[in-house]
Design a protein around this nucleic acid. Structure first.
Lengths: 139, 139
DNA sequence: CTATAATTGCAACTGATTTGCAATTAATTA
DNA sequence: TAATTAATTGCAAATCAGTTGCAATTATAG
């Protein structure tokens, strides 16, 4: 039992949610992968969980802050929330579909400044850059 | 006939696309509104255009640079391209659903810097801030 | 004005997500 | 630990978004 799994259980329990095998499996899949689309995630469950349940579990995870949606272009993928990994954004390669995490505090404060200038109370934000990674620029 | 309509027709003609009433109507709806989801757009056509055609027209508009998708959270909406309005991003109010355009050159160059540091060739980017606008913070 | 090419509308389809409900599993209590 | 209760899951079926094929219509070019 590692640290992340303990945090997961604490979050579930403090929200009166059951610790089920299905929830643990999905958490572990998310832990071991880049952001996944719903279909990618469903595939990785290897039919051990019904698709409907995967949707419901992700909905639950998002509502209690275990997972979060990140928009990639105009689709979205699922990744663990900032509780389990540092807040970040992504570069997305249009060729190989790879995501590169970017951690950049300057960018964050820049966005805060803009929100303040507009008297806007920020709840969340999305930043993504789409293009070609260094590997894929050759071809 | 205003200036924008003339630009629209020029773009269509230079791409050997017909100038049809349906295309003009959709262009005018987009001109007069904030970014619209496909369903919002379809509703505003007031059944004068079949849903399938709306999808096809937007696809065409995007391919020739008349319109563009903007991701809002993990959905997307359609707005006129940078040809018809300056490049910008949005603050989105979670309460009233209003979008506030932000024009900020510093932000753009910041993103370019990040891409360069990662040897990444940018094709497009998305930035959105979700929260509560000044009007909606009271309630 | 006619011929040709592009576009639209309709019907039907596919894939993603949601809903209702019964069966199962986890948590609570004695 | 067993029995009870509450939460969760799986299944079937519905809904919603987006797509495809094709015939009917409309725009463009001559």
């Amino acid at each position: 039992m590692n640290r992340s799994n303990q945090i997961l259980k604490d979050i579930l329990k403090s929200n009166r949610l059951s610790v089920t095998n299905q929830r643990l499996l999905i958490f572990n899949i998310l832990s071991q992968n880049q952001p996944l689309s719903m279909n990618e995630l469903i595939k990785k469950t290897n039919s051990e969980i019904d698709r409907v349940s995967v949707y419901r579990i992700i909905e639950t995870f998002i509502s209690v802050g275990i997972a979060q949606k990140v928009s990639l272009g105009w689709k979205y993928k699922i990744e663990l929330s900032d509780t389990f990994q540092d807040h970040h954004h992504h570069l997305i390669c249009l060729a190989c579909n790879k995501t590169i995490a970017i951690h950049n505090q300057g960018l964050e404060s820049y966005l805060n400044k803009i929100a303040n200038e507009n008297n806007f109370e920020t709840k969340n934000h999305q930043i993504e850059i789409q293009g070609y990674c260094s590997d894929c620029q050759k071809s």
